[in-house]
Amino acid sequence: MTSSDGSVGDARRAATAFVARELPEADLGALALVVSELVANAARHAGGWWCLTVRRDGQNLVVDVDDRSPAVPTARPARLDGLGGHGLHIVRELFGPVEILPRARGKTVRARWVAGRRPRDNRQPDSRSAAPQP
């Protein structure tokens, strides 16, 4: 699917419909968020044009977003007002490392979901519950 075929929401819906059929054990909520972030980033920061490809790789899932900008995306500090800086952090948390593959006219940003992967649990232990009981 490309930007001329639809919106970020259309890309998200198409990706989750495909994966629900092809790999129902995948985390569809995580997929929807990852697709939204990668496509929105391409639309916002790489000139607007994007091409989404979602494919199954055995029991794993590969999400590629091509764009026409050679600029390598970098994770920025998240803004507290909710206006940016969250995208790559979210993708890495849900899917893992992000690959940047240069192309003749731009790049591909690739995220890979490995079967059985769950987001990291980054919560700190609650010191009150860890205290010894009298």
Score class of each variant (00 low, 15 high):
120 R>S: 11
80 L>W: 04
73 P>R: 10
51 C>R: 15
62 V>D: 05
41 N>T: 06
61 L>D: 12
85 G>F: 10
75 A>G: 10
8 V>Q: 02
15 A>C: 00
84 G>I: 07
37 E>W: 02
127 S>K: 06
54 V>E: 00
30 A>D: 15
81 D>M: 07
14 A>W: 12
54 V>Q: 00
13 R>F: 12
99 E>K: 10
68 R>S: 12
87 G>A: 15
114 V>F: 05
112 R>Y: 00
16 T>G: 10
25 E>C: 00
107 K>I: 03
21 R>I: 01
34 V>Q: 00
111 A>L: 03
57 D>R: 14
92 R>S: 14
115 A>Y: 04
100 I>E: 10
27 D>V: 01
111 A>K: 01
30 A>S: 15
95 F>E: 07
58 G>S: 09
117 R>P: 09
74 T>V: 13
29 G>D: 14
105 R>T: 10
42 A>Y: 04
59 Q>K: 11
61 L>Y: 08
26 A>R: 04
84 G>T: 07
104 A>D: 15
107 K>E: 02
113 W>P: 13
106 G>K: 02
41 N>Y: 10
107 K>G: 02
70 P>G: 06
65 V>D: 00
83 L>T: 14
99 E>S: 13
22 E>T: 11
75 A>S: 12
31 L>W: 08
64 D>E: 12
37 E>A: 05
113 W>E: 13
96 G>E: 05
126 D>I: 09
94 L>R: 11
29 G>Y: 05
44 R>F: 05
92 R>Y: 01
62 V>S: 06
47 G>R: 10
82 G>W: 02
29 G>N: 12
74 T>K: 09
91 V>S: 07
121 D>S: 08
32 A>M: 02
113 W>I: 12
103 R>Q: 13
57 D>I: 03
7 S>F: 06
65 V>I: 04
94 L>H: 03
72 V>C: 03
72 V>H: 06
100 I>H: 13
38 L>I: 06
112 R>S: 02
83 L>S: 14
86 H>D: 13
74 T>G: 03
95 F>L: 14
82 G>A: 07
35 V>E: 10
28 L>A: 07
77 P>N: 06
123 R>A: 14
35 V>L: 10
56 R>P: 04
26 A>G: 11
76 R>A: 14
93 E>L: 15
127 S>A: 12
64 D>S: 01
64 D>Y: 00
35 V>W: 08
61 L>K: 05
82 G>K: 10
41 N>H: 13
110 R>L: 08
11 A>V: 07
45 H>D: 11
